[in-house]
Simulated scan of single mutants.
Amino acid sequence: MKSVALNAFPRVMARRGGAKKLRDSGRIPAVIYGRQQQAQNLEVNSKDIENLIHHSVSENLLVDLAVKDDSRPKRLALVQEVQHHPLNGKMLHVDFHEVAENERVTIMVPVEATGEAVGVKTGGGVLEHVLFKIKVRALPKDLPEVIAVDVSNLEIGQAIHIGDIKAPEGVEVLGDKHISVIAVAAPLTEAQEAAAAAEAGAGTAEVEMIKEKKEEGAEAGKAAPAAKAGEKAPAAEKKAPEKKK
């Protein structure tokens, strides 16, 4: 993975209210940490980091971070995490993980299917992406942005497992080798589709029934209306006196 240059600045406003003011000014709060250094609060220009990620295959980025007034001119770091706003998708915060050039690091890398599976093309099967990311370990310069997996030879019922993936030179794929990454499933028959639709309808009916029962229970559990002012409460029912023998 080729490193790209990025400028950063020591963060001045570190409180919660300061983060909003910082974003309004066109910068994003960030933090850099590593095994050899203490965590440091930073801020980066929002357009700079957005442009880097926009032109990258994934959010896995290796940056030469130049922090203003820092004792070291550049610090090699991975973009460890980018937090986005849940509604508008804007970047809220960036985590940088400082690494050394000779240090093997572990990251999650996206998996991309290439080619058209035989089972899909001729058998009408369905290509299923079981894992969208896999864990790899390598030196920073050898880290891949994406792992491409050729699915052309996959028949219906076949799958490519973690152990089947051929990683680039210098890259180690981690995880259980028997776990499926991409598979071709048989198409649903008309009977299976009808059963799935019926099951979905039954689930909806069950939810409606539960809702109706809850509403009925709520109505039954309501207290009787209290007597109006000036009215006597209904007298308790008297038991008839027992006859003497």
Rank of each mutant, 00 (worst) to 15 (best):
A5Q: 06
A5W: 00
N7R: 11
R11D: 03
M13V: 08
R15Y: 08
R16G: 03
R16Q: 14
G17I: 08
A19T: 11
S25H: 11
P29G: 05
V31Y: 06
V31C: 10
V31A: 14
G34P: 01
Q40G: 09
N41Q: 15
L42H: 00
V44L: 15
N45T: 07
K47L: 14
H55C: 01
V57I: 13
S58N: 10
N60M: 10
L61R: 09
V63S: 07
A66C: 08
K68F: 09
D69V: 09
D70E: 12
S71P: 03
R75K: 13
R75E: 06
L76F: 04
L78V: 11
E103L: 03
I107D: 00
V111G: 01
A113F: 02
T114N: 05
G115Q: 07
E116S: 14
G119C: 05
T122V: 10
G124C: 12
G125K: 02
V126E: 07
L131V: 05
I134T: 11
R137Q: 15
L139N: 08
L143R: 06
A148E: 14
V149P: 06
S152M: 07
N153R: 12
A159K: 10
H161R: 15
H161N: 13
G163T: 09
V171Q: 02
L174N: 02
H178F: 09
H178W: 07
A183F: 02
A185Q: 11
T189F: 05
A194M: 15
A196L: 15
A200M: 10
A200R: 15
A200H: 12
A202W: 13
G203W: 00
A205R: 15
E206N: 09
I210F: 12
K211G: 10
K213P: 01
K213E: 14
E216L: 15
E216G: 11
A218G: 04
G221F: 09
G221P: 00
K228W: 00
A229F: 08
E231V: 07
E231T: 07
A235R: 11
K243R: 13
K244Q: 04
